[in-house]
Write a protein that binds this DNA or RNA. Structure first.
Lengths: 166, 166
DNA sequence: TATTGTTATACTCTATAACTATA
DNA sequence: TATAGTTATAGAGTATAACAATA
């Protein structure tokens, strides 16, 4: 049978559950970050830099889709707390290269643990097979949306920029 | 085999994809509402009232988890545009009962069509079986989270408050 | 002249708290 | 006195635009 006409379809479909669960996931993620003293964006920044140290602030702003002016203050804070470090680019002195400090690297590991906890919490209603299935389907849906626009992705290789994590 | 230790688990799991896709879903949903002249919250309000006409503003505020003061201005706007109507409660004159106007009902039907389009768009990478599977898994995950706190739900009966739709 | 990072400004949301009218 | 709705105020978060240094 074909897809039923719009009016016969449930309002509570993919979009509804995705938005609702996504919202709740983000909400809870932010809560888990409080003890770490991190903003969800700052967490994303740390993970992003961890994946490619030596990024410029500009690149980061683009990946996270936030204005460069906002990156400044967030990096300011991370630098003050010795998690991130701005280094000069010998080739172009306008650019600040972002690097993790040892504390920053420790924080990234902590983030990985918290993310795992978070995932467990999110999928508490699912058994292991279902959880794998869910991730696979979400991945596929994301690929179909060419989400590279929103979250810079190289989906083909299974690589994701954690731009919006949180 | 058991769940692997936190540090060996991918950062890009359920939480990441749920947040990312949920965010994108909401973003696109809001875009689709622009031509209708609706805010995502206003859309949720209309759907909410459609499911139970005669709700009070207070009840609506609780269901949508937004302060009553905010409900006022949103209802003001919807009333000005003849989509919603405030009626006096004969039993308690403090209360305003919310009802859809004929225009409001037409708008709800339009919303149903837009929501169907939106769902199609979201699941463009999936075939029909996969899409059904995804909804089922999301539903199950939502049930596991006892999401009734965030989105007032009677999940058992498959009934959802569209509080956070969008 | 264009670009990186920065600072300053202005604006949009949002929540909070005062206020009124009923109960 | 307590509650529904409303109004007013103040605060957070955000983007925009001006600015300085370098290319």
């Amino acid at each position: 049978m074909a897809t039923p006409p719009a009016n016969d379809r449930p309002i509570f479909g993919v979009g509804f559950f995705l938005s609702t669960l996504g919202f709740r996931s983000h909400e809870m993620w932010a809560e888990r970050l409080v003890p770490l003293g991190l903003d969800s964006r700052q967490a994303a920044m740390l993970l992003n830099v961890a994946r490619a140290e030596g990024r410029s602030q500009q690149a980061l702003a683009q990946a996270l889709k936030i204005p460069p002016s906002r990156v400044v203050v967030l990096v300011d804070d991370l630098e003050r707390r010795n998690l991130l470090q701005r280094r000069a680019d010998p080739a172009d002195r306008r650019i600040r290269l972002l690097h993790l400090t040892p504390d920053g690297r420790a924080m990234v590991e902590r983030l990985a643990r918290v993310a795992a906890e978070h995932d467990d919490w999110l999928s508490v209603g699912l058994d292991e097979a279902e959880r794998d299935q869910l991730v696979a389907l979400l991945r596929k849906a994301a690929a179909g949306l060419e989400l590279s626009g929103t979250v810079h992705s190289g989906l083909a290789g299974g690589e994701w920029e954690p731009a919006d994590l949180g």
